[in-house]
Design a protein around this nucleic acid. Structure first.
Lengths: 338, 338
DNA sequence: CTGAAAGCGCTTACAG
DNA sequence: CTGAAAGCGCTTACAG
């Protein structure tokens, strides 16, 4: 005999007893009201309302092996919280009837990957979208789909993995089109795939187009590294265009240039990356690369859903994850080089 | 006889069989390895590793009635995605051993509240932090703790519910201290509790301090409403200080003022609210109120955890959810009024 | 159209 | 220290 403890939601059995039917029938009511005889349906309907019954979704998940939940795995570093990506990913998942669980992982690639495997086996989620660097090669057996977005990713095939390449090339082509010949690059740390990609594509493009690089400063994504990079150059280096690792670096480059009497964009053009919110408000405003985080989140979830359903990978909803934005920090070089 | 289907994780029974023990013993091993005899432990250990076993957490949750998961309920409006709050909330929850599920709700307060009740009964989460307007009065029986953060909230007691009051008073006191006597307020829409609070505290403070309000413009959080508000004033109104509903409104006020020849802060001081990222980069940079979203998220989760554990509500980790920031858009009024 | 039975994979008294 | 049994709240063939 079931006793209903206080402070515990009603169960399907209690509904069944009140309605005078079997719990099987109540379950059927939950799946498809139409499958019940009208008089039965009325009885169950009454009992459900009377007890304010809501099914225990954990029990349902256990039985059906479906949770309608996806996990988004991200690095445990609050200063880079991927809000825009998450917003789009969550909305896309919700529209498909899935909940989203946020999981932040820290530690080495190895320990993070172990955490993801646990998650994949836990039965709690039906798929994983990782925006953190993971390595789950060879452990995919008996597990759920795992999709990685490219930009944050160090060693997995993912969304737009080599996308960075295209934009660095476009930046240089644009600057060359304005008349620039003498370039400088302030790179991010080589531990980031994106930094490595940008640097190597910078060097390749300069060479391919017959331009000149006055050097590459290996920085660390900070404004200071931009400042240090530009101020370390000799006065007569002749540089007129800087490809900065990101917007923050670009602000450092601009301050450093000004400190030595080079005005931007009069004497020096500076290109950033990220289109952070401040980029349009600085003086001068920053030419930069807008990363479509919404598209990353949305397309990541759509790819994951397709894998869960056993469908082929969908086309990206947009061709251009990254888009160049031209603002005040870039202009033609000064008429005669310094 | 259990047959192991392909592509299905190992179960506790399979581990037990391989180890030559009962599944009860394996379960015990999972709870506390020390409770097993060393020779038994070795056998189980081997089997767990050999099968790469991970417990099914859904089954565990069903049995223990614990999920180690909290839900954060937010409005389904991507343009205001509460990234910073979420980052802090997630980190706090993770540190306490909880996962976080993001749930966005839309529709009327009524339908949103129904959704939250479903969630509370689903067994899937142990507590709910709502940063959306909800109304769950009288339905709390047989359910899990629900905590609401104040700022986004329309009708629930929450974190810093009346916090807005303090800051509006401080803003006016600060401006009066600079010498301002003639104020103007561009309010947000009255459907927002925060807008209503700010407006009423504005009026009260002006009156209490014997200052003068040249009017209140009822806007809608947009820059245009700021522009319209300031340009709607007569030339000889004598205003020297504007309390804008938020930073976006403030930018509109500044543009509108400039369009009629009033320079900020020379002729007019303008105070914003939110300290959005651009606030420090505009010209002039904005005096504004920085809302500590991190503290909101962190304290919301801490309060929720305390309720779950049946502990008294913890002290907020910071006294000042909101903090005034003085930048270039405020200064003493011009020597003689227009 | 409905019910009795089995079972999803665990944990937890209860014996021994 | 270990095992047999019960049960968490559902869903789903299988009969009728």
């Amino acid at each position: 005999m079931t006793t209903s403890s206080p402070n515990r939601p009603a169960t399907i059995h209690q509904v069944a007893r009140l309605a005078g039917v079997s719990h099987t029938t109540v379950s059927r009511y939950l799946q498809d009201k139409e499958s019940l005889k009208p008089t039965t349906r009325v009885k169950v309907d009454f009992a459900v309302k009377a007890l304010d019954y809501r099914p225990n979704l954990v029990a349902r998940s256990m039985r059906t092996r479906r949770t309608n939940r996806l996990a988004i795995v991200m690095p445990a570093s609050p200063e880079a919280f991927p809000g825009r990506l998450l917003a789009a990913a969550t909305e896309t998942a919700h529209q498909a009837g899935y909940q989203v669980e946020m999981v932040s992982v820290e530690g080495s690639v190895r320990s993070r990957s172990a955490r993801i495997i646990d998650l994949a086996r836990s039965g709690q989620v039906e798929g994983i979208l990782s925006i953190s660097s993971i390595d789950v090669r060879g452990r995919a057996s008996a597990e759920i789909p795992i999709v990685a977005t490219g930009t944050y990713d160090d060693n997995l095939r993912g969304l737009g993995e080599l996308a960075d390449a295209t934009e660095i090339r476009e930046i240089i082509e644009h600057l060359a089109g304005l008349g620039h010949r003498d370039f400088f690059h302030v790179a991010g740390p080589s531990t980031f795939a994106s930094a490595r990609n940008r640097k190597s594509v910078y060097l390749e493009t300069i060479e391919r187009m017959g331009l000149r690089s006055v050097g590459v400063h290996d920085g660390n994504w900070t404004a200071k590294s931009g400042y240090d990079g530009i101020t370390s150059l000799p006065d007569d280096c002749g540089v007129t265009a800087v490809v900065a690792g990101n917007d923050v670096v670009a602000t450092g480059v601009i301050r450093g240039a000004r400190s030595r009497g080079w005005e931007v964009p009069r004497d020096l053009s500076v290109f950033g990356w990220d289109d952070l919110e401040f980029a349009r408000f600085t003086t001068p405003s920053l030419s930069t690369v807008a990363v479509n985080r919404e598209a990353q989140g949305r397309d990541g979830i759509l790819r994951l859903l397709a894998e869960i359903r056993g469908e082929p990978a969908p086309e990206p909803t947009t061709k251009t994850i990254n888009r160049l934005i031209y603002r005040e920090s870039t202009a033609p070089p000064p008429p005669k080089s310094r």
